[in-house]
Design a protein around this nucleic acid. Structure first.
Lengths: 249, 249
DNA sequence: ACTCGCCCCATTGCACACAATCATCTAGGA
DNA sequence: TCCTAGATGATTGTGTGCAATGGGGCGAGT
């Protein structure tokens, strides 16, 4: 959008952190980055300040910027807050969501399933990106811009850790089914249901990040079992299934 | 703490905005601020970026920084989020709060009442400051640093608008009584109760910010009626009163 | 052998200069 | 008279040099 050196540097470093090229705890030297980008230190400094405010790096005076690392407790805190805020966002989105947003959600859900079944080597990155967009659509449909932007800044931490490659087949299919159920709840304009599903979705994701035996999480997800939803229904849902409603809370 | 030029500039501008010396929408010129502070533009720029990230100013490329103004909708969104997050913080604080934090709360509550009854010209600023500290103690007692820091950044918006000088006598006394009830709920380690009171407290404050006839809000608060709590009980409350419990939600 | 203190170097903090951009004012033409 | 295009001034974006700070290594003393 705006091709200033600062935003360039910002995107470069941010991308580097999210992709894992800059590992947690790494020291980001201003001169190094400046020469790497062919600019001076000034825009680099500003970019680092921005990332500091965003929580991706931590700047200590006279000692420079380090890539943030999150403890297990901090990750837990992130999910606890997401539980609260994403649940609220889903509830509000149910009342306000536009039809084109709903079709976007369906599109993203379908593309996620396709990416998983494609077996492509970077499918997990693709799913992560699509998943972020999926959630962002819901946030924005809540009609509360503060809620939406607060969520954006909070989710950062889980984005670095959560690569989907550690999901088991069962967990992946559960996650995909949550997406589908969410879409249905939103189509029905059922805020209680949407909130309940979202809370399931976040809580389930929270368990995935816990440390656990390795044999569970490595390459077991070749065959992903999905509910028979592969063709997404057109927008005003024909009410093909009305499962039990989840109550509030 | 750290007397760098950047933090100096940061505090200067921040103070200026919160005190109202820089009015909403005002254009903050870098050179102006630099000469005013006797420094160069570099630390000013960094301070402005920080304030931009915090949401106090808005920077548009090549056009500089403007003091943010909040629409009524945005203020409403702030209170909606506070309702959610401060309620949660109060609930968790009930389980974890330390005795010295409780005595701090009592102290702040007492000082607020004294400030109001003193009739000093800057009593409202004093109450606002004490009120912020009161809430911050609860946030920090929640044991969730992410929740606490998120609240800090969100509350910013309400801090600029909410000066307590627009409170009527009834509203002020209600607010003070909420503080007292909160302390009691926390002393009893009753998370449900604490959350319920906090939600009352926030929701009541939300109404105050609504536009309304002037005669209600100007200098009617000479006589503030308080519940008979003026002497704060020592920490492990002797259970002098156990009012109705507020359920969750 | 271990600890304490000093010095040097890497790195950041800040000032200043110049380039790029935007807003406003003015002049010219339809 | 109104609209548009160009020029000009004000303001921000970026590069560079120097000062200040902090950490690590080396040496001396215990």
């Amino acid at each position: 959008m705006d091709e200033t050196s600062t935003t360039l540097a910002y995107n470069f470093v941010r991308e580097g952190i999210l992709s894992g090229r800059f590992q947690a705890g790494a020291h980001l030297r201003e001169t190094e980055l400046a020469t790497a980008l062919g600019s001076s230190r000034t825009p680099i400094r500003e970019a680092l300040r921005l990332l500091d405010a965003e929580g991706l790096v931590e700047i200590t005076p006279h000692r420079g910027a380090r890539v943030c690392s999150w403890s297990h407790d901090e990750i837990r805190e992130t999910y606890a807050l997401r539980l609260l805020l994403e649940g609220e966002a889903a509830r509000r989105a149910a009342a306000l969501i536009k039809s084109d947003a709903l079709s976007q959600l369906s599109l993203f859900a379908t593309e996620m399933k396709q990416a998983l079944q494609s077996g492509s080597p970077d499918r997990f990155a693709t799913v992560a990106e699509l998943n972020n967009r999926f959630h962002r659509v819901i946030h924005q449909s809540s009609g509360d811009s503060l809620l939406s932007s607060t969520l954006s800044s909070i989710i950062m931490a889980s984005m670095v850790k959560n690569t989907f490659s550690i999901y088991t087949a069962v967990e992946l299919s559960r996650s995909m089914n949550h997406h589908q159920e969410l879409i249905t709840a939103l189509e029905h304009r059922d805020g209680d249901w949407a909130e309940a599903v979202m809370r399931c979705h976040i809580q389930a994701a929270r368990w995935v990040t816990k440390p656990r035996p390795l044999e569970l999480s490595l390459n077991v997800h070749q065959e992903v079992q999905l509910s028979p939803h592969t063709t997404t229904p057109s927008f005003p849902s024909e009410g093909n299934q009305i499962p039990r409603r989840g109550g509030s809370q």
